[in-house]
Design a protein around this nucleic acid. Structure first.
Lengths: 233, 233
DNA sequence: CGGAATCTTGATTATCATCAAGCGTCGTGG
DNA sequence: CCACGACGCTTGATGATAATCAAGATTCCG
């Protein structure tokens, strides 16, 4: 029995383009791998040797300047695809932010398989086009928004992305969302192009203004989503 | 006779995936269109009605905040593909920076054609993956680089992108490149996430330091490329 | 030649980075 | 179980960078 049959992202990942026979063939060239938080699976600048589907967890894509400044250029969630198919070197590292589970393929094997399965390539194309749209939208934030707008945009995005998974709703307060962020303060800074101190100050400001609450380091309660949207610019 | 036979980007654009018969079929659903500098062909937020190949000229992809700040999120050159295939709305406007010529398709027609021609979709996928890599590299610049680093990076990128076309070399000074920029100062600012004043000051600083010369508004002579690379961070 | 648009330059200010403590929290080992 | 230490976060003081505001200077075109 194919292990894919049990896969929780089976119907959302690019694998959904395949029929059972094809899926079995894909299973044959892939294997699952467990990652612990902080562990990297792809390093910036090395030539592309593997690609993968995210089954569980959250991972960051990041680049660094020579002198160590970091920019997180993407965040991937279950069912997302990582790695650079079709040659070239990987322009960014991939590191687990939480414990994670991925379904790994050798890039060469995957490339060959994909070229024989246009439906798979089509899914990958749609996914890549969507990722490009999302990335370009983020450029507006990085290039033109203030620290306050960046933080608000970040929290709005998180509210949308974590809906379902790391997001609780208290019985008696239906308008409040309690998010469990997969990011440290430093990582939020690296997403937004800010420093950790600025991020921290923005958090306390939003808390003092009653827009959010901060029950613990990694948790944020969204008290006034509309204000966040307005402040996101 | 198919007009594509005469197309100057025939062997570089995604069309190169097609054999003569297929190309004739593609020709049947496309038409060329001339754009004058400043003219837009796609607007941010509208639903995607057309896609195109760039035949000649340079165009910008840009997004704006509600209050009018602009960020250029991409620049496209001859043989590049523009527009958003496979549904969705376009996240950014597309505007000609120079007079330009494009080969336009209705998005619906193109989608249908692409789905029947996996080789075309493959080319488009490779192109989209490359564009995503490039875009992510630009995020490091927007999020983490200083004004000086941004300007140097910009000039390095321009030197590479304009090699051949808008780039002259004087007979007696083989190390110098004279670039004709397709951007105004404001547009450079919109690419780099800076203000026009900061861009102008960086230009004069580089000129005073002997790294570049500025023979006219739209021209830059690269006198010391290595220093630019070093300063790009 | 005139006028508008674009660009440069200067003065000032605001924002965010940097530097520097201090505080909490979590985990470990005594 | 508590003390200790490390790490991550917050807060404050100060400073640098780039934005803003405001004139001028060029260039471009009719």
């Amino acid at each position: 029995m194919s292990s894919c049959d049990l896969c929780v992202v089976r119907n959302r990942a690019i694998c959904s383009a395949l029929d059972p026979m094809e899926l079995a063939a894909l299973t044959a060239i892939g294997r699952t791998r467990q990652l612990t938080a902080g562990e990297s699976i792809i390093w910036e600048g090395e030539d592309s040797v593997l690609v993968a589907n995210v089954i569980d967890g959250v991972l960051k894509l990041s680049t660094n300047t020579e002198d160590g400044r970091e920019q997180i250029v993407g965040v991937v969630y279950p069912s997302d695809f990582i790695g650079r198919p079709f040659g070239g070197t990987t322009g960014h590292g991939v590191t687990a932010l939480t414990d994670a589970k991925v379904c790994v393929f050798s890039r060469r094997d995957f490339d060959a398989f994909a070229r024989e399965h246009p439906a798979l390539e089509h899914k990958l194309l749609e996914r890549t086009l969507g990722e490009l749209d999302r990335t370009r939208r983020w450029m507006l934030l990085l290039g033109r928004k203030s620290a306050a707008e960046k933080m608000a945009s970040f929290l709005v995005e998180m509210t949308e992305r974590l809906s379902g998974s790391s997001c609780r709703v208290e019985r008696d307060k239906p308008n409040q969302r309690i998010l469990t962020l997969p990011f440290s303060r430093q990582q939020i800074a690296d997403v937004l192009g800010l420093t950790i101190e600025t991020v921290s100050r923005q958090f306390t400001r939003l808390k003092n203004e009653g827009v959010i609450d901060l029950p613990s380091r990694r948790e944020v309660t969204i008290l006034d989503f509309d204000t966040l949207v307005a402040e996101a610019g």
